[in-house]
Amino acid sequence: MSYPPDPNNPYGQKQPQGYGYPQQPQPQPAGYGYPQPPQPQPAAYGYPPVGQGYGFQPAVPQSMPGLVLTTRVLLFVIGGVQVILTGILLLVAATAKHEANTRHGDTAVFGNAAAGVLLVLGIVYLLASVLSITLGAKFGKGGPATRITTLVYGCISLLLGLLVLISGLSQSSTSNPGGPFGLIIGALWIGIAILWIVAMSTRDGVAWFNRPRY
């Protein structure tokens, strides 16, 4: 005689699934009448996937690049030297004017002319010093206008340095004591001007002055 299995017996056999027994729920396959899970849409031909651009955005520099910082320091140094030269030229011009007022004839005419030339040079150096110091001060928050102005300033300085170098060469050929000094000043000024131009033309320099400002 067989006995029905005890439902409270944990060691009893599992009830087979078949006719008269409840079936376990089976996962329904996706098909007609059933919603399908969302599928990622492929990117269309010739277009980048959603959320991606055509390329990486250029990195925004967090600190001033080395060449730009060097240019800024040189602008401050050159501005200070130009202020000193302005003072010297104006002092010499005042002295020449005073001497011309105490003389007569050709000496007075020459003294007045020399005083006028020195006064003009002093004003030019004063304006150049203001420009140099102003540009250096704007390197921290300045934009493309600051970069372009510094680039133009460097090109003009390069031309002036070439003129001084040519003048020094001509004076050296005539055994003029001022020739070597002109060569040194001209070569130094050309080197500084080239550094300014390179710093304002490199990718890091352009990115620094084109960075967003908040």
Rank of each mutant, 00 (worst) to 15 (best):
Q62V: 06
Q62D: 15
N176A: 06
A96T: 11
L119G: 10
L121Q: 03
R213V: 15
G79V: 02
T146Q: 02
L169S: 12
M64W: 05
S173R: 07
L188K: 12
G51H: 00
G116L: 07
L127M: 12
R213H: 15
V130N: 07
K141E: 15
Q82R: 09
V92N: 04
N210A: 13
T146R: 00
G122Y: 02
V124Y: 01
S170I: 13
G105T: 02
Q13C: 11
P177L: 08
P212D: 03
G191A: 08
L85P: 07
T149H: 03
L121A: 04
A115S: 08
G111V: 03
A207D: 08
A44F: 06
L165N: 04
D106Q: 13
P25K: 00
S175K: 14
Y45F: 09
Q82K: 08
G205D: 02
V92K: 05
A96N: 13
I84E: 15
Q23K: 00
G31L: 03
H104Q: 12
D106R: 14
T107P: 13
G20L: 06
D106H: 10
L169M: 06
A207E: 09
P35N: 00
T86K: 02
G12L: 01
L67G: 12
P65G: 00
P180W: 01
S167I: 11
S173H: 09
A199S: 08
Q23A: 07
G178E: 13
F56L: 14
A100P: 00
G31Q: 01
G168M: 04
F139W: 03
Q17D: 15
T95V: 10
P22W: 03
Y3F: 12
G154R: 02
K97G: 14
Q171I: 04
I166L: 10
K14F: 12
I185A: 07
G46W: 02
P16W: 08
N112A: 07
R147P: 00
L121V: 04
A43I: 05
L163S: 08
P5T: 13
T134L: 14
R213F: 14
Q82M: 09
L160Y: 11
G136Y: 07
L135F: 04
L91F: 08
L160N: 10
Y3Q: 15
G31E: 09
T86S: 03
V50A: 15
R72H: 07
L169N: 11
F209T: 10
T149L: 10
A128S: 08
H98P: 12
H98E: 13
S129N: 04
G136M: 05
G191M: 09
G18A: 05
V83Y: 14
I84G: 14
L119D: 13
P27I: 07
Q57C: 08
V73T: 14
L165D: 07
A30W: 04
Y153C: 12
K141Y: 15
G205P: 02
G182Y: 07
I184D: 06
L135S: 08
L69D: 13
P38H: 05
A145T: 06
M200W: 06
G18P: 02
R103D: 11
G80D: 06
Q13H: 14
L195V: 04
I88D: 00
R203K: 14
L121T: 01
L165G: 05
Y3W: 14
P25M: 07
G142Q: 01
A43R: 09
G116C: 04
G55M: 06
